[in-house]
Write a protein that binds this DNA or RNA. Structure first.
Lengths: 197, 197
DNA sequence: TTGCTTGTTGAACGATCGTATAATAAGCTT
DNA sequence: AAGCTTATTATACGATCGTTCAACAAGCAA
């Protein structure tokens, strides 16, 4: 009988497992608690695997950032795809998705603030943020253009909407008692209506 | 001759010195680099002083949060006080001050993200945030009311402006290349004009 | 079955973490 | 000038940090 001493898994699958464990640990205890041992325990593996698959904990955290960013983008895209054809409805759906699960999640906030805290010291994390932000704004500009917004105004409108959504999302997660998703949605829809009228 | 082995300083002054050192260390290396020894070295004192004056590093960081929050509020209030009597000019000045020094400072962002990262794990920090946010919004509601905004609309307008300013400020500090203060100011002024028209 | 590749473990390393504590001395009171 | 309070230092402690590495074994190829 003698069950195996460990599970041998394909590198990609193991990397994903470690990334998901990192996200959970970050969400639970913030950046301070995200040690190699805590992550490894969460993933059910030995600490040495982090160095083996990622070279170091910094690279693992960066990879987690990239993966979480991708999931957020995917969730937003899926919401838009299910929104039908009306351009303004698509735009509203896009921003409203930021205030609903899985995006408006305290766990996601914890992950995100951990990343922001690393931007200061780690240029690689800063570069990831810039790329993610640019992609988000590009998607928003496409939706705005589809609404008939003048090309000269799209950039500024996209920045304004992004900032408003980020600010509301942040407050929604930081102190849920002061703001709920319905109100956040109503505020952004009023703003959008004023911009693309 | 024999110069003194150390400077004996009044407790309040020493506490302030340690708080300021903490802010500098947080700004320089983020929350990860803000160790007791790093702070003590920055302040030019022995590590033991942190425990003596604050009981622990967590309390020191919380005190730094409180002090930085107070400085931000003071800077905003000073800007408004110098803005004259026109209600809408006062409102515009209030939000515009968020995009100029000393508030739109990468160092301040680093300090702030460090605090956000601690909100997850430390309820005391979360309570500080709630209080600071409530105070900020209350001030904004006063300025909005002075502009003649209907009482029923002030709450929502204050939330919208706060979120917009926070989002712009965040992006302004995180990736200055993608946004400058003038554009942030123009965006908020357009938003305010639409709200209090 | 045998051999090989390599994912995985667990221990060990030095560095650094936060905190506690005894000894010291600075500055005020008397 | 003597004494007292206490701010301050320097050191030490145990815990935990990220990383390294030799040994092991799981799963595939032959």
């Amino acid at each position: 009988m003698s069950k195996p001493a460990f599970n041998r898994v394909a590198p990609d699958a193991r990397r994903l497992s470690l990334i998901e464990a990192t996200a959970r640990v970050l969400a639970r205890g913030g950046a301070n608690g995200a040690s190699v041992r805590a992550i490894a325990t969460e993933a059910g593996v030995s600490p040495g695997l982090v160095a083996h698959h990622f070279g170091g904990v910094d690279a693992l955290i960066a990879a987690t950032y990239a993966q979480v960013s991708e999931q957020v983008s995917a969730a937003l895209d899926a919401a838009v795809a299910a929104a039908g054809d009306d351009p303004q409805a698509r735009l509203n759906t896009y921003v409203a998705a930021s205030f609903a699960p899985p995006i408006a999640d305290p766990a996601l906030l914890a992950t995100w603030t951990a990343f922001w805290g690393l931007v200061v010291a780690q240029p690689a994390i800063a570069a990831l943020h810039d790329a993610q932000y640019a992609g988000y704004r590009a998607e928003l500009e496409k939706l705005l253009t589809a609404c008939g917004l003048a090309p000269a105004a799209t950039r500024r409108a996209a920045i304004a909407i992004t900032a408003l959504v980020d600010g509301l999302w942040l407050e929604l997660c930081l102190s849920p008692a002061a703001l709920d998703a319905d109100e956040a949605r109503a505020i952004t829809e009023a703003q959008i209506a004023a911009l693309v009228r």
